[in-house]
Structures are given as C-alpha cells and as structure tokens.
Simulated scan of single mutants.
Amino acid sequence: MAIDPTQPYDDDNIFAKILRGEIPNKTVYEDEWVLAFHDINPQAPEHVLVIPKGRYVSWDDFSAKASDAEIAGFVRAVGHVARAAGMVEPGYRLLANVGQHGHQEVPHLHVHIFAGKPLGPMLMRS
C-alpha cells in the first residue's frame, strides 16, 4: 500500500516501533540523528535502510520541517554508512520513495542504500 506523504505521522509504523526498541533490527550505525540497519527483505546483496530518529513521513516532510542539524546529520550518516561498508568503490544506489507514485510503503522517511552487484537501470522503460 502506497503512502500519502501529506498524512500525519503514524506512531505505529514499523520504523517507529524499531526506533522504540519494540522490533529488533540488525543495526549498522546509530547516532543522535539516525538509525541505519539491514533491510529484512534485501533487494541487493547489501541493502541498508537509514532513517531519521525524528517523526517525518517523507523526504518532503523532512526537508520542510527538520532542523538544519537533523538534515546535516542525516545526510552525513548516509555517507558514513556507505563509506564504512566499503560501498563507495565500486558504487552504490540511494533510493527514497515518496508517496503513491513513488511507491512509498512505510510512512517514515527512509533511504535505501543498495550495493554489492551491478544494479541495472533505475527505471523500467515502457
């Protein structure tokens, strides 16, 4: 089910539960701004999710409402995770789905980091 990025934050979403420690995860990195962990259904040999600790539905919500420190911390954490995992060379892909057309499934901002094999084209050509 795709998400409406303008909806209010849902405190019962799976990532909120992970942040509260109600659902276990395989943490890759954590600091005051973010939690990064392995995806439970990986779509590439390496598939890490990076989520802000704040209550943000989507990239749009985050970019409009987060503090400068939260935004900088999130962006730096994504880079840190990729570097620490050795993904920079030969490369990786970042993906943030937003809303129904973007196929966002969890109403909490998250960035996917995919790596470990050639990933092919970004979108299927129609």
Rank of each mutant, 00 (worst) to 15 (best):
E89G: 11
P90Y: 07
G79N: 12
A69Y: 01
I71F: 01
V50Q: 13
Y56M: 01
H80W: 06
G86K: 08
A66N: 03
P52M: 10
H80M: 09
I71W: 00
V57T: 13
A84F: 07
Y56R: 06
I71L: 11
R55N: 15
V81M: 06
V81S: 01
G79L: 00
D68E: 14
V78D: 02
H47C: 05
Y56P: 06
S58N: 03
M87N: 13
R76Y: 07
D68N: 08
G91H: 10
D61F: 02
V57I: 04
H80G: 08
A84S: 15
P90A: 07
V75P: 00
A77G: 01
K65M: 03
A72H: 12
G73H: 02
P52Q: 12
G54V: 11
P52I: 08
D68Q: 14
H47Y: 10
K53T: 10
V75S: 07
V78Q: 11
V57R: 05
A84K: 15
D68M: 04
P52W: 12
I51P: 10
F74S: 01
S67W: 05
V78Y: 00
H47P: 09
E70C: 04
I51V: 15
A69F: 00
F74Q: 02
G79Q: 12
I71S: 05
K53Q: 13
G79I: 02
R76V: 04
G54C: 07
G73P: 01
A77F: 00
A66M: 04
I71P: 00
D60V: 10
V48Q: 09
R83N: 15
I71V: 13
A72W: 02
A69S: 09
A82K: 01
Y56N: 07
A72Q: 07
E46D: 10
K53L: 11
E70D: 15
A85P: 04
L49A: 08
A84G: 05
A84I: 04
L49N: 09
E70S: 14
H80L: 11
I71Y: 03
A77H: 02
K65P: 04
A64L: 11
G79A: 04
E70I: 06
D60R: 09
S63F: 10
D61V: 02
W59C: 04
